[in-house]
Each structure stands twice: as structure tokens, then as C-alpha cells.
Write a protein that binds this DNA or RNA. Structure first.
Lengths: 245, 245
DNA sequence: CGACGTGTTGATCTCTCTCAATTAGAGTGG
DNA sequence: CCACTCTAATTGAGAGAGATCAACACGTCG
């Protein structure tokens, strides 16, 4: 596959991304291994695997998850273009979580020591990476609050709002439009700590209330205000901007 | 208060901490503001507060939390000596979570731009900070799995094991000993997404099974193997070593 | 001594889970 | 073109883990 040069990366044009100097981009591109295409459903990192790849998600959606022995699965968070994959995993350790593609996906892969190289050669980028890690944590924090303390309806309202915002920030165009939403009810259930059946019933309820619509894998929020009120969401909390190495 | 010099920091003697060169420690100490003593129950960072402090926990226990408007509270994770406080908070933003002291606490406080200073002047330390942030995230990941997919008994077993391991790693001495455990059942409930009453009943059940004992704020695991089996815990996952700037 | 925080226990109540069955659409092979 | 299979969504019924409500015990403290 013909790899996109970093300076021409379309993700850079988005306002949510951090600015980098041309020199920084040159270094980043020189470190990059290649771009890799993977099919929807592919496992990018297996739980417990050693030496998994380090990558950024160039296109497509994925998710991080952990499973218990008997198969219960918890989705930790969803990964959208610009997100890091495999940052948590220290050099030779095994990955504490799995990563799976929700759609066809393009990864920019890097050698395992890239994080260290960047810190050493480009402190400003190293700093951004720290901030990125801290930011991903606050997304997980937010999920933990939902799963721990919100009711099923509140959790779902929250998830719809958060994913809508993240997706629309990546999709230039008027607000209020529909955004890609490539996840099944099973994914929602696994992300929110709910059963599939209850997820379906609750989703149905919100749908009948006219709060959202999903058509052909695209989500529209018909009443964002009502959803935010239902989710007990401050609107503060996690800022939506996400940097990219 | 007489501040402990960083090179003499007792935390450094612990095997779980990262090694730093004398030069690095000198820079770190030069950046440090002071040491601050705060009482048990004190709020270190208020939710939504701007310009909160940046600090490391030198002594004592604390916890991070978020609350919903109606008062429901979720504890995100517990902070033990050596942990960072306020790393998530970008410069001028408001803090996405609160931090409260569980015991009397001593903080080593730093100016807000210390993270950047360290990245710039000591890339190796910057790298450690990135790893620390990623590591704290995996603790939250683990909590999310518990709250989302484990039963009450499993969650409590998990929490007892995890806190015991973290605390005993900081407390030189024979394994199998008792460790400080300065949290109430209300804290456990808020960390695990359970009600206080159900937490009490479940705790009681595990106690009657002879799995643990808490005496005068100190925890002993009487049957760690049974607890691990109950928690469906692999033992892999989050490594226990934690670095310190 | 009364107020308060923490732990404990019993009695309901209900939100969510589990089990079961049905529908609809997409893909596949004959 | 049509059975056949699979996945995803849907709905009803019954069961259960955990929530809520209410008391009470105990120790500390001003």
C-alpha cells in the first residue's frame, strides 16, 4: 500500500489535532514502519500477547477490551482515528488488554522503541504523548463513572453523546449531521456493563422517545439536550481535542 | 516542615521504584516547591477546580473520584505513596476529578509546568512519566472490568487483593503480614459501584469464609489463593511496579 | 451525655439478568 | 431462484443480584 506522508496526513487538518512543526513530522515519518490495512473484526492485539505492535489508528474504528476466564468481556474504550494503540504496553511486557477492529482499519505502525526515540529527540512531542496517555485515562475514568454509578438509560445516553462528539470532531461538516456508528448492540452492552437484552430494551425506549436514530450504521442525535440531561452530563470533563503523534 | 531531600527519599529505596541518576534527582529537587502536610479528609483537588496543584504523594493514602449532580460518587482509583496527583490536568484546564486524602498526607508539590520542564531537560524522566500515566490508566482499566463485569463478591475479592499487593510493596517486611488499610466500607462501595449495605453484607460473607481480617485499620489476607480464585484474577495484567519522578 | 461516623442486619423492592423464541437481512452453495 | 445458515435486532416471561428503607450497636468526641 502507498503510505500517506505524515505532513500530508489528512488527520492533521482537523482542528482537534495538535500542531506539529515540519521538522517534527519528518522525524515521526522517518520512524514509521509502514501503513497496514486490517479487516473489520481483526484482532490488532491479543490479550496477554507479547511484543504487540505500536501504532496509531489512521482510519477506521477499533476498541480495547479485557475478558474474564468465563468469557465475560468488558470494552474499555473505543478507538477512533488519531488514537494510539499499544502505548500502555511497556517494551517486553504482555499486553494487559486486547484490541479489535470494528471496521476495516489502517494503522501507521512504529517500532516498539519509538516512544523513547520521540522523547529523546523531540521533547515537545514526548510531552504530547504524556498528555495523550493522561487524556485516554480520563476517557476510561468517564466510562468507569457510567458503569459504576449510572442507570442503564443514563449510560446509553452518555455513550451516544460521547461517541457522537468524538466522531463528529473527526468528520468535517455541519454539526447535527449523522456520523459513522459501526458498533452493534453487543458492543454497547460490553462497553456499559449491561446484558445484550437489557441494552436492546433500553435503546428501544430511548428510540421511542425520539432521542436518536441509527440508519445504515450512521447515528443522528435527534434531541442532544434531552440526552445530556438524561446522562447527567456536565459537558465539562474530558475535553474532546485529541492530539496525534 | 523540613523537606526530605529527593536523593534521600525513602520511597527510592523500594524495589518497585524506578532508578534515577543523582543528576536527575538534583533537577527534580530543584523544581520541587515544598512538602505539604494535609489532614485526613482534606480535599487535595476539587472537581472542576482550575489550576490545582501538581504533586507526588510522599506519604499517606488518597483517592481520585468523580460525582454526579445528585451526589452519586465513583472512586476511580486509590493513590498510594509514589503516585502522581494532578497529572491528567492540562495547564489551565479544570480538573476532571477530585482528590481527597484518606489519611494524613504529605505531598511533594511542583509548579504546574514541571512536567514540561522534565520532558525538556530529562527525556528519560519524561519517558518514565509517560509510562506512569499509561500505568495508572491500566489500573483504572482493571477497575472498569470489575465494576462492569464482576459480581459483588468478585469485586471485593479483587479490591482486597490489589490493595494488599500495592500496600505491601511499599511496606518492607515479610509477605503475609498485615498492611495499612485506611478505607471505610463506604469507600469500598464507591470504588466498586455497589451500595453501602450490599458491600457490608458481601464483606461479611467473605469474612465468615475466613478469607480476610481487618484489625485496627490493617488488612490481612488469610487465604489469598481463595480470593484470587474468587476474583477470577490471572495475576497477570497490571504490573505492580510503579515509578516515581 | 447527645451527636456523629461506621458497621451490622432484616425486610422489601426493582432494575437488570437469564432463558426462550421470533424476525429480518446478508451471504452461500446447489 | 431457493433452501440454508449466520448475525443482529427484538420481545416476553420469570428469576435474582443488588438497591433501598429502617433499626440498632458501638466508639469517639466535643
Amino acid at each position: 500500500m502507498q503510505a500517506t506522508p505524515c505532513p500530508k496526513c489528512p488527520l492533521r487538518a482537523l482542528s482537534v489535532m495538535l500542531a506539529n512543526t515540519p521538522e517534527e513530522l519528518a522525524v515521526i515519518e522517518s520512524l514509521r514502519d509502514s501503513q497496514t490495512l486490517l479487516r473489520a473484526g481483526a484482532t490488532l492485539i491479543r490479550e496477554g500477547e507479547r511484543g504487540g505492535r505500536l501504532a496509531t489508528l489512521f482510519a477506521g474504528w477499533a476498541f480495547r477490551y479485557k475478558t474474564l476466564r468465563d468469557g465475560r468481556r468488558q470494552i474499555l474504550n473505543f478507538l477512533l482515528p488519531g488514537d494510539f494503540i499499544g502505548l500502555q504496553q511497556k517494551m517486553t511486557d504482555e499486553s494487559p488488554h486486547g484490541v479489535e477492529a470494528l471496521t476495516d482499519v489502517v494503522l501507521c505502525t512504529f517500532p516498539r522503541d519509538t516512544v523513547w526515540q520521540l522523547h529523546q529527540r523531540l521533547p515537545a512531542v514526548g510531552y504530547d504523548i504524556t498528555w495523550l496517555a493522561a487524556h485516554e485515562e480520563s476517557i476510561v475514568d468517564e466510562n468507569l463513572v457510567s458503569v459504576g454509578r449510572r442507570t442503564a438509560a443514563e449510560r446509553i445516553a452518555m455513550l451516544l453523546i460521547r461517541l457522537y462528539k468524538r466522531a463528529s470532531a473527526l468528520q468535517p461538516g455541519a454539526p447535527g449531521r449523522s456520523v459513522l456508528f459501526p458498533i452493534t448492540q453487543q458492543h454497547i452492552a460490553d462497553a456499559l456493563g449491561l446484558s445484550l437484552v437489557h441494552t436492546n430494551k433500553t435503546l428501544r425506549r430511548l428510540h421511542k422517545l425520539g432521542l436518536y436514530r441509527i440508519v445504515e450504521g450512521h447515528l443522528v442525535l435527534l434531541d442532544p439536550g434531552a440526552l445530556e440531561r438524561m446522562a447527567d452530563w456536565y459537558g465539562t470533563g474530558v475535553p474532546e481535542a485529541r492530539p496525534l503523534i
